[in-house]
Amino acid sequence: MIEFVALPAMNLSAHPLWLVGFRPFFSLAFLSGLSLPVLWALMFAGVLAPPAASFSPTQWHAHEMFFGFGWAVMGGFLLTATKNWVQIRGYHGPILMTLVAAWLFERVGMACGGAWPPALFWFSNTVFLGSIVALLLWTLVRYRKQDSFRDNYFFLLVLPAFVAAKVLMLDPAHFHTGVTVALGLFRVAFLVMLERTLTQFMKGAFQVDLLRHPMLDNPIKLLALSLVFLDAMPKAMAGALLVTLAFLLAARIALWKPHLAMRRLELAIMYLGQIAIVAQLLTEFVALHRAPAWVGSVSVHLFTFGVIGLIVPAMLIRISKGHTGRKVVFDAGDRLVLWIMIAAFVVRIVLPQLAPAAYTAWIGLSAAGWFACFAILGWRYIPFLLQPRVDGKVH
């Protein structure tokens, strides 16, 4: 007689992938980073038909880069960082699995181009962002007394506003405002993150203390927060705030010892990202007063390529190594992907101004740069995210 031996059921939620927020969401960031820009380049060149949608291909592209790729990065970072800020275990297991399923559900809904019944489409488009924002806010509010950072109230203001930006971006009548709001919100998040991380990185690399003073740091963040509402401001007020923030940021960059940072590519690229914020603010100021002479949406892509594109790969490398118990050292492969993104930035922003007739080719080449960068990162680091920590710690 054959005897069947019952094997213990595998607890999928205990797999390393579901132990900390950065593991599944950085995996999604690698995959979306290599695919979404390529899909857009193929659509722009007429090779791939865009979804038959109630919104334009440009709306799809902007939404997917901000709320697909961008929020895979942001979600993974904040789910991991907030638990460390307030010293708790953090969301894991079934909650993370549900959030990932909601993120994937949103991508399917966007790929269908809004052809679903309106109620289903809007559910697919808000369930992920609404859920993760609610969870992050709950963490910051419930454990506020043990929060390591007093200025996390910026996240209490910024995170709910992302939902409004998403809704505006999918409305053809308010698309430009939605992009402006989303970009402004990401700008605030990056400025807060850079304040906290660069001081640590420069201290560790060069044993120097970067200037941190509330009289400089707080106005920078408050100005950035106010510029989320740039589209609703009178022209004179908007121009004054843009120039003031650009000046304060440029002054702080000059005080933050850039001559040292430029010796190390992994630090230099974060300074280049800050310089891109300054450049983006100044291009917005110019656009307020006269029709831009440049080719393409330079202001938006100064941020998406110059800030998100340059800073995010270095951030993903640091967290994927450090939070899996590995030593955070940028090897030749890591430096290669950073150089690829710098090249993609030049191709997307600079070359179209020099040879505008080849604009479609520059979009294709810059998308190829994103593909190469995130394909290499995914190939190298997704295995780290699927494995237990090498230092023996659980999470």
Rank of each mutant, 00 (worst) to 15 (best):
G33T: 08
F30H: 14
R150Q: 09
I220T: 07
H92P: 00
N84W: 06
L265T: 01
F105C: 12
L282H: 05
L242G: 00
S226Q: 12
F285S: 10
I319G: 00
M233I: 07
L241M: 12
Q387Y: 00
Y91T: 07
S56K: 09
W103C: 06
S27D: 08
L79C: 03
L310I: 03
V181R: 14
T82E: 07
F285E: 12
I253A: 00
P214Q: 02
L260I: 02
L210K: 05
P356S: 05
K166L: 14
L140A: 09
M202K: 02
V278G: 00
S56V: 06
K221T: 02
A45N: 13
S148N: 10
Q274L: 15
A276P: 03
G33R: 03
L170F: 00
L272G: 13
F155N: 11
P383T: 04
L19Q: 14
F149V: 06
A293Y: 05
F201A: 04
E284P: 03
M74I: 14
D151G: 03
S320H: 08
A164M: 13
L385I: 10
L338R: 08
N11Q: 09
V127F: 08
A367Q: 11
W85K: 06
N125I: 05
E284I: 09
F384D: 15
L19I: 09
S35R: 02
P51W: 08
K221S: 05
D171G: 03
A357H: 11
V390G: 03
S27R: 05
F121P: 01
P356F: 06
D231G: 15
I2K: 15
L386I: 06
K393S: 15
A287P: 02
L267Y: 04
A165M: 10
V158I: 15
L7W: 09
I308A: 14
V100T: 15
F303M: 10
P51T: 04
T98K: 12
W256F: 01
L216I: 10
M43E: 13
Y381L: 04
